[in-house]
Simulated assay, not measured.
Amino acid sequence: MSRYSKIVGTGSYLPPKRVTNIELAAQLAEKGVETSDEWIVSRSGISARHYAEPAVQSSDLAVEASRRALDMAALKPNDIDLVIVATSTPDHLGGFPSTACVVQRKLGISNGAAAFDVQAVCSGFVYAISIADSFIKAGAHKNVLIVGAEVFSRILNFEDRTTCVLFGDGAGAVVLSASTEPGVLATRLHADGSHGNILCVPGSISGGAVDGSAFLYMDGQAVFKLAVSVLEKVAKEALDAADMSASQIDWLVPHQANIRIMQGTAKKLGMSMDKMVVTVDQHGNTSAASIPLALDVAVRDGRIKPGQNVMMEGVGGGFTWGAALVRM
């Protein structure tokens, strides 16, 4: 009998502090940075985002999203035999212990399940889905908890209006389980390190201090051009691998980075915006958390139904990109 992997639960969590463009513009004005709701919306489609309080870490957001995904899957923490957390804002400097291990501890998973982080920035969740799918199909794991969790507000330069208005904090999670029915139909992953300088945090740690900048840097125009190009191609690669066409996609759940990138991708795939899940207006760009956040919103409001085909795709610093075609 063939062994497949299937999403059996989704969950998400946003920190309570919601900041609108008008509120953010007022805060930035105090620093001498000029922006407006109109300026932000016209360039990104973003109207609001959520920020975590100073004491809240990525793992805290991840745990809340995970609990909701586990509840939907009707599973207990110790039913999970692998934890993968996609994050660019880990709890600990240097990335260890991994945020996945912290999430494992906070959830009370005490069965010795494997746990590790994935760092592919905004593509991290798609990378994690592909990894978990391979492990399950190989028979190595049965129930995998996959989380995208970020506190990007910690690495934003609030004197740079081209970046600080775009990002927010949050977490999304899925439980991927072994199944006799096809769930993950195809995944495709790519990276091109020659473009690493267009979206990065260029600083490093030396002698216990930051060497260089610890703030996010982005060449917006370069990212836009590359993103629209690679997202169309990787989506078609996944469709070809599954022997399907774009007309068979019920829902497109892209990385929620910029509404113009999302519109450009839908147009190139010949898809109506009515088939795209959009949360960027209320969440901003939550990096690795954006796809599972959007997926959970659409599952819980009834748009995404069992048996439907969903294309998830993302691009991130590195430069990384990937797509996952799944049947819910």
Rank of each mutant, 00 (worst) to 15 (best):
W251I: 05
L93S: 12
V277S: 12
D281M: 06
D281A: 11
N111G: 11
T99N: 08
V102M: 12
A138W: 04
T87G: 06
S59T: 08
A115N: 04
C101I: 12
I22A: 15
V277A: 15
M271W: 10
P202E: 07
I259C: 11
K31V: 03
T10G: 07
L28A: 13
G148P: 01
A209Q: 09
K17G: 00
V223A: 11
V126H: 05
K225P: 00
L185T: 10
E23W: 08
D296N: 15
K142P: 00
A323G: 13
R18T: 08
G317C: 12
G314E: 09
I146E: 10
L156S: 06
E30Q: 04
F116N: 13
L93C: 09
A266S: 13
F116A: 13
Y13W: 08
P16H: 12
T35K: 09
E313P: 00
G316K: 02
S59F: 05
F152N: 14
T163V: 03
V228Y: 00
S290F: 13
K31W: 01
G172N: 08
D192S: 08
S287W: 02
S98N: 11
S287N: 09
V175H: 08
D160Q: 04
E181I: 06
S42G: 11
Y217Q: 15
L145R: 03
V175K: 05
K137Y: 01
